[in-house]
């Protein structure tokens, strides 16, 4: 059994229990995509590309009153310790669905009937919490593509390791820990778009963990916002016109 929290209350990577990993977001990294972003969340490295809205193929999938959102979460073969087969796995298919359902409530898809918006998430390096990082990066890429949305979506996970509720689990903590709970919220509208829980938490732990996740999401939202502002208005622009 690995000791996940030492006697000083620090985790294996030196973080406190309520600390997230270093975060970096870049916007517009791919020239040919309509919108794109790159996120580094701890050791997670993910590139997201958004294409669309465009015509749906096959055509029978098109909806007459709104656009459809298609997400593809894919892990590169070199993204994990042992080679990952490039074929979409059961897990990747599920995460693709989960991400698309977490993003959909925020998007105003009714603006583009009979079209499709494709979101491609390519995980270049994975270290636990990649679905949360993926959701965070996807919203930025969608905003970059100019897709209208009610609010940005921000995600962060909480979990339980060594009997304590901790924020933002990495791969080891996820595997060795007792519970993992990814949360995605719309920070301005105060609504939750994703809530999964793998493991067991008591009601008190759940309450505490959820609050920690929401607070972390609000911090991540500021990073998202800054990334967009830097790209569109320049690094030193804050002013009015």
């Amino acid at each position: 059994m690995i000791e996940l929290i030492d006697e000083k209350g620090l985790r294996r990577d030196g973080r406190r229990v309520d600390e997230i990993r270093p975060l970096k977001i870049e916007v517009g990294v791919l020239k040919n995509a309509d919108g794109s972003s790159y996120i580094e969340f701890g050791k997670n490295k993910i590139v997201v590309a958004v294409y669309g809205p465009k015509e749906v193929h096959p055509k029978h999938l098109a909806l007459p009153d709104r656009s459809i959102l298609r997400c593809r979460y894919h892990m590169a073969p070199f993204s994990t310790d042992t080679r990952k087969h490039p074929q979409p796995s059961r897990r990747e298919i599920e995460i693709s669905k989960v991400i698309s359902e977490a993003l959909e409530p925020a998007l105003i898809l009714e603006d583009y009937p009979r079209t499709v918006i494709n979101v491609y998430l390519e995980v270049l390096q994975a270290d636990g919490g990649s679905r949360c990082a993926g959701i965070t990066a996807s919203t930025v890429a969608l905003a970059d593509a100019g897709i209208p949305m009610r609010d940005m979506v921000v995600a962060c996970a909480v979990g339980k390791i060594s009997g304590q509720v901790v924020l933002d689990l990495n791969d080891t903590e996820d595997k060795e820990g007792e519970a993992d709970m990814p949360v995605a919220i719309m920070p301005n509208l105060n609504q939750t778009t994703l809530l999964q829980l793998d493991g067991i938490l008591t009601p008190e732990e759940f309450e505490k963990g959820f609050e920690m996740a929401v607070n972390a999401c609000r911090h991540i939202y500021e990073v998202q916002r800054k990334a967009l502002i830097d790209k569109y208005f320049g690094k030193n622009e804050v002013g009015e016109e």
Binding site: M149, M152, N188, I229, Y232
Partner: peptide
């Protein structure tokens, strides 16, 4: 008045 905004911003 003009102001720079991102999606979801009040």
């Amino acid at each position: 008045s003009r102001k720079y905004v991102t999606p979801g911003e009040l």
